[in-house]
Design a binder for these strands. Sequence first.
DNA 1: GTCAAAATTGTAAACGTTTACAATTATATA
DNA 2: TATATAATTGTAAACGTTTACAATTTTGAC
Lengths: 342, 342
Amino acid sequence: MGTVSIKDVARLAGVSIATVSRAVNEPDRVRRETRERVQDAIRQTGYAPNSLARSFRRGRTQVIMVVLPSVGDPFFTEVMRGVRAVAAREGYSLLINETQFNTLTADEIGAMVVSRQADGIILLASLSPFGTRVLSAENRRALPMVIGCETIAPELSEIPGIHIDNVAAAREATAYLQDLGHRRIAFMYGEHATLLTADREAGYRQAMDAAALPVHPDWIVEGQLSIEGAIAATSRLLDLPERPTAIFCANDEMAMGCMHALKTAGLAVPRDVSVVGFDDTRYARITDPPLTTVRQPARLIGERVMERLLLEIGATDADDAGVEILPHELIIRASAAPPSER
Amino acid sequence: MGTVSIKDVARLAGVSIATVSRAVNEPDRVRRETRERVQDAIRQTGYAPNSLARSFRRGRTQVIMVVLPSVGDPFFTEVMRGVRAVAAREGYSLLINETQFNTLTADEIGAMVVSRQADGIILLASLSPFGTRVLSAENRRALPMVIGCETIAPELSEIPGIHIDNVAAAREATAYLQDLGHRRIAFMYGEHATLLTADREAGYRQAMDAAALPVHPDWIVEGQLSIEGAIAATSRLLDLPERPTAIFCANDEMAMGCMHALKTAGLAVPRDVSVVGFDDTRYARITDPPLTTVRQPARLIGERVMERLLLEIGATDADDAGVEILPHELIIRASAAPPSER
DNA sequence: GTCAAAATTGTAAACGTTTACAATTATATA
DNA sequence: TATATAATTGTAAACGTTTACAATTTTGAC
């Protein structure tokens, strides 16, 4: 009474295994009477198709591999919600790998690619250190791929991508601080997700240049893309002789750490220092003070990425490898204000 | 030049496919010279074993299915980090399903179980509504299973489980508030994760009973296990004629929403109302004020759960289906203080 | 050099499904 | 009713791997 296979059902229903298979997969192609007989047999035996055999035979796993920096980040959580929704609807499962914690090495990802453990891959993190190998031309042909959130490295420009205009968004956020009257504006980013924050840094620099404001090298601080990293980076900023009056953080998680560090240093936000974040995670509106930040349509990004991937999987070469730019929005709350007179 | 199979390697190396298979899987069983010849051929052809075929043949997927309320919750994120670490080390991938967003229905989970899409299942959420079907005796025999975090429903007591003593932890947290001088203590929980919060409510009631304090029915409020849910529940609490002076929240996420709601209502924490959370997520120490909460060894729980599952998978019946209780700790920060005189 | 045992390799079957093709049966048309 | 066509079903091969068993080669002891 081990596992029941298609043969058992066929025997009980008095048909061939081919008919059972058809009754399961293309019910219209089998006579109603027979179909019902098969369904009865399935019910009686408790048969469920062996998905291992099915995957093997079909050459498809119905699994999508997702590579992202950290599932813990509320922003990516939201992106994943979108991915998951579409995936579930289309019958796909998700295999998740966090680069931040090196679950898989580059080689292992490459191996998964060629060994067909997944039908497609979603990259929400840049794979800069080893991008070329994993994303070699052959691999790309072998496995449909879409890049989300990240700007795409030039050498991978033929891979479809979906993200906001990070440069413009960062430029606007910085300009907002300038409009409030800030001149000494710092930029805080994380060492991981390099490509992504590179764009935001570029936007920051563009805005500073446009306003003819100097960018002191010490104002650009690198932490981890985490609370702890932000706390450390903030204290470095506070030790500076010429202390910035505003800090633009590469994501909300860092902004939260930054605000905490400022408060524990006895500074008030935004009275003494203004803080602006990026992402508009669910925590942004309940920080104290509520965080002014750049909203990304996280869920939508996830949905579009997954839909795009399905398109790649379906069509043999749907090679309009275009990049889709989604809208962003500066959400003004209370963590940024004009600098105090001095 | 499509995919390269074991046959291509065998042909190039001048050996049989069986030898190639052995060279790959049990290198010691093939002569050194031959092995090297095979390895050369593998390198030349770029061969990677087809994992679909391998899984099918071996009858194992190297995939573990995880069912949990929400990956977005920082507590579960941390638990998953532990699970992931062990899984990666042992060569397993994770398939994740969130009950909170109904990615999969009970039937679908049941189907995955019998159709062998995973080698084992980790339950971090109670499946109360349909527990019996998914967790039927046959299914349990078919698929190794471990329950984490949740207290186990009585009818499933033979499934191994790993969690803290939620009742005791909640009792201590409540007693702490009592020791500070609070008498009107509310308990806020989420509708999901029912079994889990049921234990915490029991602990709360035990402490109240032990201190001979009344428990007003209105003081036990149900929200969602989310920020929004907590905000709504808090405002209900504030509308009460006999307003509680302390609120014990079933998790940190709710505590964060609760504190936010209190502040926007013009109340100071902990001066006007004390708040205690549960989980000690990474945000607990940077809320304003820092959150007093019950720490669970989240990562450790994850590790132990996964290790336990591997044991179940390995040994045909390692039936010491014991429950493992991990230690908890009340972390005292600044969100709870003696009630203000009145 | 002979023989037994051990090490190495090859042959072929098996895993459970899908699917091309052939065979059969039902239906529609004349 | 006979025939052409469509609908339904069965037969058997195939997918790429692992593995029991047999066949061969090597090794070691005498």
